[in-house]
Design a protein around this nucleic acid. Structure first.
Lengths: 114, 114
DNA sequence: TATTAGTTCTACAATTTAGTATGATACTGC
DNA sequence: GCAGTATCATACTAAATTGTAGAACTAATA
C-alpha cells in the first residue's frame, strides 16, 4: 500500500527531467511534455507532480541563476536522485520483461529503431 | 480529459492477459501478477481492473469450458481487443522513445537481453 | 514607472485507479 | 446430496493521481 508506485504522468515527467538536464524547469518540462506526447498539459499539474516526485525522493531542486530574458524570474531546476533513477530503471526492466513475453510487442528485434 | 489513459496496474494486467492467452482468467492473472512483479495482488482488485479495461474497450471475455478439476467452476477467459493491443503498442513506443533520449536508460544496446 | 512576459507557487477539487469485503456459482468427490 | 474448493461477481471504500484557478514574483522594455 505504501510502495511508491509511479503514475503514468509522473513517470513521464521524471523521465523528462532526466532528459532535459540543466533545462529541467517546470515551464520547459510542460512544453516538452506537450511536444513529445501530443497531450496538452497544464503548468499547474506539472507543478504538483514535481512536488509529489520530490516528496517521494525521486527529485531534488535548486534555484538557478536569473537569465537576461524578459520576464526572467529565476528558474527552479530539478534533478533526478539516485532513487529516481533506480525507480525508472526498474520500471523499464519490468516492462521490457513483460513485452518480451508477448510476441507482438517484443523489443528484441530492434524493430523500433528509426 | 477523456483520453483513456492506462494506469500502471491496468497496463500490467492488460499485458498479462496478452501473455497468458488461453489461460487468461482472473485467478491465474492475479497469480501471475504476483509471480512477475513480486507485489501482492488481491483477486478483487484484479477483477475490478479487468472490468474497467473491458469498459474501455481493451478487453473482451467469454466463459470457458469447465475443467475436470475439483471446484472447477467455469472460467471467464479474457482476451485483448485490437484497441487494447494498439494502446499497449503506443504506450511502448512512447516509452522507448523517451528512454532512448536518456542515456543511462537507452534500450538500443540490447543490454537487457539475457 | 507602468506594462508585459515568463515563470513559480499554493491550495484545493475532480477524476481515476486500486483494494476490500462479502456473497454467489458451479463443479468434483465422497 | 453434502462438503469442499476454485472461481466469478458486485458494490462499496480508500487512496493516489491529475487538473484548475489564480495569486505573486522578477526582470525587461517602452
Amino acid at each position: 500500500m505504501k510502495e511508491t508506485r509511479l503514475g503514468e504522468f509522473e513517470e513521464v515527467i521524471l523521465l523528462l527531467v532526466g532528459i532535459l538536464g540543466e533545462e529541467a524547469y517546470a515551464f520547459k518540462i510542460a512544453e516538452e511534455f506537450q511536444a513529445q506526447s501530443g497531450r496538452a498539459s497544464s503548468i499547474g499539474s506539472v507543478h504538483s507532480t514535481l512536488d509529489r516526485l520530490k516528496e517521494k525522493g525521486f527529485l531534488t531542486s535548486e534555484m538557478g541563476q536569473p537569465t537576461a530574458e524578459r520576464g526572467g524570474r529565476r528558474k527552479r531546476i530539478y534533478s533526478i536522485t539516485a532513487e529516481g533513477k533506480t525507480a525508472l530503471t526498474s520500471s523499464r526492466d519490468f516492462r521490457l520483461s513483460l513485452w518480451n513475453q508477448y510476441p507482438g510487442l517484443s523489443v528484441d528485434q530492434l524493430s523500433f529503431l528509426s
